[in-house]
């Protein structure tokens, strides 16, 4: 694995993933099954409060990595340590957000936002107060009492993001959260997120994407995974000043980093 500009030390971090292996077995028509090695010897460390993007070709096992960290699946080998504790197979440590917003249509925006707090038995009044503060930060206050059906795609995704943040977990796993949005709305979301990120007390984020510009605009570090079985190919530290805007996209330093990432993504092995 190469490291670029301002390599971070691999001292103990907030999230440590060590030598992770995962193989799936697909049933075959006749007998037995086909082994599909999906993750191979993945190791990385994330510091508290960091925003890490993970990019890689389609089907390389990025979502598998998230399923392992969230406790939905169990790795064949390796360790996942969060804040000093082994969390393999344990649910309830992270917040998860997918391309689908998965807002519950029968709950208002506010009721959707407090879902995580509700599951942690936080008193309702307290949960609502916390949610109302963040709704204001996210410019969503006027929609607190609306049902998701009356919101636009971008707004729904912002609510889903808020819900993920409000779940009160220190680690957020975002699996292509803006992947289903049109280019314009997506770009708005980037500006919005890059804009509020330095202002709010932000958790640690792992962010899966296919979009190199998105990764650079939002992250402190970008990890590139190779094709399946996924290995970590490159780690790039993004030294751009915050708050960032989409204007950065045409600047020289940005383009240079984009080139490095593209080269890594599109070279085999």
């Amino acid at each position: 694995m190469q490291e670029h500009t301002g390599a971070r030390s691999f001292a103990s971090g907030y999230l440590e993933v060590k030598n992770l292996y995962k193989t799936y077995y697909l049933p075959k028509r006749e007998t037995g099954s086909i082994a599909v090695p999906t993750l191979e010897d993945i190791s990385f460390t994330v510091k508290k409060g960091e925003f890490i993007s993970i990019i890689g070709p389609s089907g390389c096992g990025k979502s598998t990595l998230f399923n392992l960290i969230s406790g939905l699946e169990i790795p064949d080998k390796g360790q996942i340590i969060l804040d000093g504790k082994e969390i393999i197979g344990q649910k309830g440590h992270v917040s998860y957000m997918l391309q689908k917003d998965l807002l519950l249509p029968w709950r208002t925006v506010l009721e959707n936002c407090i879902l995580g707090l509700e599951l942690q038995n936080v008193p309702k009044r307290e949960a609502i107060n916390t949610a109302n503060c963040l709704l204001a930060d996210f410019n969503l206050s006027e929609f607190a009492g609306s049902y998701p059906a009356s919101l636009s795609g971008g707004m729904r995704q912002r609510v889903a993001f808020l819900r993920t943040m409000l779940a009160g977990r220190e680690l957020l796993l975002l699996d292509e959260p803006f992947g289903a949005l049109d280019a314009y709305t997506k770009s708005e979301m980037h500006d919005w997120l890059a804009g509020i990120w330095p202002r709010i007390s932000h958790p640690t984020v792992l962010f899966i994407t296919h979009d190199v510009e998105e990764a650079l605009l939002l992250s402190d570090n970008v990890y590139v995974l190779g094709p399946r079985p996924a290995k970590l190919k490159l780690q790039l530290s993004v030294s751009l000043q915050r708050p960032r805007t989409r204007k950065l996209v045409v600047e020289k330093g940005f383009i240079e980093m984009k080139r490095i990432l593209m080269d890594s993504l599109f070279t085999l092995g």
Binding site: L72, K91, Y96, K100, L115
Partner: peptide, 18 residues
């Protein structure tokens, strides 16, 4: 019911009855 919604609640640590 949408299995991804179930998955989301599982990750949040919800019990089956929840």
């Amino acid at each position: 019911v949408d299995q991804d919604m179930v998955k989301l609640l599982l990750v949040m640590g919800a019990k089956p009855w929840q």
